[in-house]
Simulated scan of single mutants.
Amino acid sequence: MSKPTPIFEAPWHAQLFALTVHLHEKGVFTWPDWTVDFGVTLADHRLSGDLNGGDDYFNAWLATLERVLQDNKMASGAAVEDMRSAWEQAYLSTPHGHPVKLPA
């Protein structure tokens, strides 16, 4: 019996999707609004040659979510950049195979 193909290629893809669905369910945005915003991001990425079917799709998803959070005054651009920087530093300083954790 073959192993089922995972729906998401990476755990962060699933986490990002789940967070987006959660925010939608909490009323932060409507799904039709999300699809319009995401479509704009996909078109922007496609035009610049950034969309190739791998992590790029979820990077576009993340860019859309970040913009939605900023538009809804849930996170400033500076807060998003600070968090991105903290995750990058945590990722780069974590030994291979270990979970990435942000400092307290």
Rank of each mutant, 00 (worst) to 15 (best):
V28F: 03
T41C: 14
D33I: 09
W61E: 04
H13P: 03
L16P: 03
N59E: 14
G53P: 11
L69Q: 10
V28I: 07
Q15R: 09
D55E: 15
R46Q: 12
V36T: 08
G27A: 06
A104G: 14
A18S: 11
L23H: 04
L92K: 13
F17M: 00
M74I: 02
H22D: 05
N72K: 15
W61S: 00
F29G: 01
P4G: 07
P4S: 02
V68L: 10
V100Q: 12
A78N: 14
A86Y: 04
D33T: 08
A63C: 01
S93T: 15
I7V: 10
T5K: 09
A18F: 06
P99M: 02
K3R: 12
D56K: 08
P32C: 03
N52F: 08
P95D: 15
D82R: 13
E25F: 05
W61F: 15
A14L: 09
P6E: 02
E88F: 05
G77S: 12
A63S: 13
Y57A: 11
M83Y: 12
G39V: 05
M83K: 11
E81M: 06
L69E: 09
G53R: 11
A78I: 04
Q15E: 07
E9K: 05
P95C: 10
F58M: 02
T35W: 11
L23I: 01
P4V: 04
N52K: 12
E81F: 07
L69K: 10
G27L: 09
D50G: 11
A86V: 01
V68C: 12
G53D: 13
L51F: 12
E66I: 05
A18R: 06
A90Y: 06
W31L: 12
F38M: 08
P95E: 08
D82G: 01
H96A: 15
S2N: 11
V100P: 07
V68K: 06
H98M: 15
D44Y: 02
E88T: 13
K3V: 03
P4W: 09
A60M: 06
D82P: 00
T41Q: 15
F38C: 03
W87H: 08
D37W: 13
Y57N: 03
F17E: 05
A43D: 13
T20S: 10
H98D: 15
A14G: 10
P32Q: 05
L19G: 00
G49C: 06
L69A: 04
V36F: 13
E66N: 14
R46C: 05
W34H: 11
T5R: 14
W31N: 05
E66H: 10
E81T: 08
A18Y: 03
A79V: 07
F8Q: 01
V36Q: 13
E81Q: 13
A43K: 07
V100R: 01
N72L: 07
A10G: 00
W34T: 07
P95I: 08
V68S: 05
L23V: 00
P103Y: 07
F38G: 08
D44F: 00
N59V: 12
P103G: 10
M74N: 00
W34C: 05
T30P: 03
A78H: 14
P103D: 14
T5C: 01
W31C: 00
A104C: 13
L62M: 13
Q15M: 00
P4N: 06
P4K: 10
G39M: 05
W12M: 00
A75D: 09
